[in-house]
Design a protein around this nucleic acid. Structure first.
Length: 421
RNA sequence: GUGGCUGUAGCUCAGUUGGUUAGAGCGUCAGGUUGUGGCCCUGAAGGCCGGGGGUUCGAGACCCCUCAGUCACCCCA
């Protein structure tokens, strides 16, 4: 083996691509019903876009970005997530001027240079939505419903849907102060990591996986008791709307989203079938991002979800990915003369929308039959010297094993009747 | 960046206290049927035992280094 796939990347092979198509189709279908329009942005952006929007202090920016200089000495970065790109496109194309509310979704690869593990790759795929232009809580709830509908319709069970509010620029500083005061008292018993976070991002200590940290912070103050009037009312409405839609949720006062730009609503959808990286998707409101990127102040809410993780969960729950595509007709070809007859015939059938495979002429009939079986072909059409001479073919139903003769010029009619009842 | 585990055929894995020529199942290919798939039977192809060094009369096995995969920490989808 001379060449290897880069660390943390995966080939999606022909034998499993149908799974991807299946979930992608479901995603697009749900997006259509919620009236979200797709947006495609470049896979790389100027580095500054990400460092500004996501936050210099986050791991995503601090150590996980694929950043490089192009030949013009510009610093570019492979997108680690999509919200920044979408916001940039929104501002740059003045989408807010065309309509007051922009609802977009995306689906595609993201890149983060981390150590791979279960459910975490360096190139991975996300889908997500951004609902830009309204601060109304019904939009928060709509994005949640989009994500949950996709999971529900794919048949996923046992999800944990957690919500929280992380406040805004008026109430969060007050809370932060209270939290830091509390944490200072137990500082020396905290893990080394958490002691560092006390300075950089104290709220993250609350969702530390360290057992001791968890116990030490059992009675720590939580954001939701420090929310300002506006944030509190917003959070209440979100909950009431979820209840009205009969969507089960859990309030998790320790839920903190990783990226700097979140305000008010934060949510996460978890599955127990994922191993340590248990988040299937997460989202929240980011009312301040547009402004921080130089646009008009524009409230927005959205989520991002991992497709690899989704597939892991579906496999763990033994859910269906539909059927792998298979040929309607497999031509078994015996000899040069037969091949000459088959080529135009196959062309005609393909134009009529039949999926056709032509067996390898240099292999035996038996080998071609075996191949047709392995490929799950619905019908086999056998054409050899005899058939060509009589302007006929043998058509075999691979399910029943029945075989009969058929004039070449009636083949499409016969197949039409057989395959499209 | 740190730690645990694992690297033998395309895949999943055996391989005894170090001992002749490296094993199985599945898959692939061919034959058993001059032109008929699945089941069955027979056979074949396919291995620098991850790489390098060391110990030894002798290493797939033991030691060291290294690379890769995997899981976990950190963090996140």
């Amino acid at each position: 083996m001379n060449y290897r796939i880069p660390t943390g990347t995966k080939d999606i092979l022909p034998s499993e691509i149908y799974k991807w198509h299946f979930v992608e189709n479901k995603i697009r279908d749900v997006m259509r019903r919620f009236n979200y329009a797709e947006i495609r942005t470049p896979m790389f952006e100027y580095t500054e876009l990400f460092s500004r929007s996501i936050g210099e202090s986050t791991d995503v920016v601090g150590k996980e970005m694929y950043t490089f200089l192009d030949k013009g000495n510009e610093s570019l970065t492979l997108r680690p997530e999509m919200t920044a790109s979408v916001m940039r496109a929104f501002i740059e194309n003045s989408l807010g001027e065309l309509q007051s509310l922009n609802k977009v979704y995306y689906i595609g690869p993201m890149f983060r240079q981390e150590r791979p593990q279960k459910g975490r790759l360096r190139q991975f795929h996300q889908f997500g939505v951004e609902c830009i232009g309204s601060q109304a809580p019904e939009n928060d709830v709509e994005t949640m419903a989009v994500a949950l509908s996709i999971y529900e319709e794919l048949g996923i069970k046992n999800l944990n849907f957690k919500i929280n509010s992380v406040g805004c620029h008026t109430c969060r500083p007050r809370y932060r102060e209270a939290l830091v005061t509390f944490l200072e008292n137990v500082k020396n018993d905290l893990s080394a990591e958490s002691q560092k976070r006390l300075l950089t991002n104290p709220m993250r200590i609350l969702d530390s996986k360290n057992e001791k940290d968890f116990q030490l912070t059992a009675n720590a103050p939580l954001m939701n008791s420090y929310l300002c009037k506006e944030c509190s009312a917003h959070f209440d409405k979100v909950q009431a709307m979820l209840q009205s839609m009969n969507i089960a949720f859990e309030i998790d006062g320790r839920l903190v989203r990783g990226l700097d730009y979140y305000t008010k609503t934060a949510y996460e959808i978890q599955s127990e079938n994922l191993g340590s990286q248990n988040a299937l998707g997460g989202g929240g409101r980011y009312d301040l991002l547009a402004e921080s990127l130089g646009g008009k102040p524009t409230p927005a809410v959205g989520f991002a979800a991992g497709i690899e993780r989704l597939i892991i969960v579906m496999e763990a729950e033994k859910l269906s990915f539909g059927e792998a595509p298979k040929p309607d007709v497999y031509f078994v070809v015996l000899g040069e003369t037969a091949l000459k007859a088959v080529l135009p015939l196959a062309r005609q059938l393909r134009q009529l929308a039949f999926a056709c495979e032509i067996g390898q002429n240099d292999r035996s009939l038996k080998a071609q039959m075996r191949d047709a079986n392995r490929q799950n072909a619905r019908y086999v059409v056998i054409i050899g010297e005899n058939e060509v001479a009589q302007n006929q073919c043998a058509i075999k139903d691979m399910k029943s094993g029945e075989q009969k003769n058929c004039p070449l010029n009636e083949l499409s009619v016969v197949l039409n009747g057989a395959l499209k009842p």
